[in-house]
Design a protein around this nucleic acid. Structure first.
Lengths: 173, 173
DNA sequence: GATCTCTGGTTGCAACTTACAACCGGTAGC
DNA sequence: GCTACCGGTTGTAAGTTGCAACCAGAGATC
């Protein structure tokens, strides 16, 4: 048994300073960590090949492997073998990662305001930003149910709503 | 005259994808960019030597120089020569950088919840998180006054409040 | 007018990280 | 036994970071 969900702090190496912003940047401030977490969070993909082949930014397989194991070591993802196929690994968000939802929402909102983001890929970020804390909480509850408790993805939840909006815009509707 | 404040989008190179989260990560997702912005935002330091010698994480001078010029190019900082000393440069936050305040608040809140942050360096992050959007707006208004309009730092503002709380805790009070 | 200090940096070099492409051994279905 | 799928590893080149030393121009001091 590993540490209970939400109990303590993450097992990360000591940083250059104890400033919370600096520590977060040391952990997540690279080119891929947040992008991988974004994909697990919003795309619903939880297996290596899924994440590799569906990545919008075409992440390389060695980078994906190294990020996944770093995130597992840091306690942001957990690793589960699937009964169906002994080599298949299910990567699930931990409570710490689920609590990054508000950060992702702000990151998306700022990027779609200030950077040359494409309309199709911005729609989810904008909806999530407009939804505010109330929507973030609903999304987090949904992620807890699917990633921590192993329940199936609801068809009428926040993620389904965001995905539908994306598909509507992406298909030119 | 450069582009009016808050008018358009930032002049950044095209990214690997138009996803707003990815674009933000491409711009700010490295070891130092957000740390430098944090210092300009919260420490009140706006000159090269100040930022270099007061840095809690001891940034190297070449890295600081390269980040400052990158942030200026990206439109997150602006560069002003000081009349008093012709070589002295005043780096000021732009509107785009000021709108990172909520992101910084979340970054700090998450880091002080999940990472081994020191109590003294966490107190500002926790106050800012507790203050919520209302406090962030007041802080942003204050930053606009000092960085965009060149007004002096108020002694009774949000920054003064945060700094006082930090000094109280840091001195063991 | 020489010296000292402060200004924002630059240079050279070693270590580490990222990126791309090819390749791999174990598992499962047919 | 063949084929497809599974999570990766390996080799190598290019780019980034980190450290320490160094620098030229500007202003103040004597």
């Amino acid at each position: 048994m590993t540490q209970p969900v939400g109990a303590g702090r993450l097992p990360v190496p000591a940083g250059k300073s104890g400033c919370p912003i600096n520590l977060t940047v040391e952990l997540l401030g690279d080119r891929w960590s947040l992008v991988v977490l974004r994909d697990v969070m919003f795309s619903g993909h939880r297996h290596f090949r899924e994440l590799l082949t569906n990545s919008v930014e075409s992440i390389a397989s060695n980078i994906l492997a190294s990020r996944l194991s770093k995130l597992v070591d840091a306690g942001l993802l957990s690793r589960h073998e699937e009964p169906s196929h002994r080599q298949k690994i299910d990567y699930r968000l931990t409570e710490a990662a689920i609590e990054l939802v508000p950060l992702m929402a702000h990151l998306g909102a700022w990027g779609s305001r200030w950077l040359p983001a494409s309309p199709a890929l911005s729609i989810r970020a904008e909806l999530l930003a407009e939804g505010g804390p109330e929507m973030w909480e609903r999304f987090m509850a949904e992620l807890r149910a699917t990633h921590l408790d192993g329940r199936p993805q609801p068809t009428n939840g926040v993620l389904a709503e965001l995905t539908q909006a994306y598909e509507r815009v992406a298909s030119g509707g």
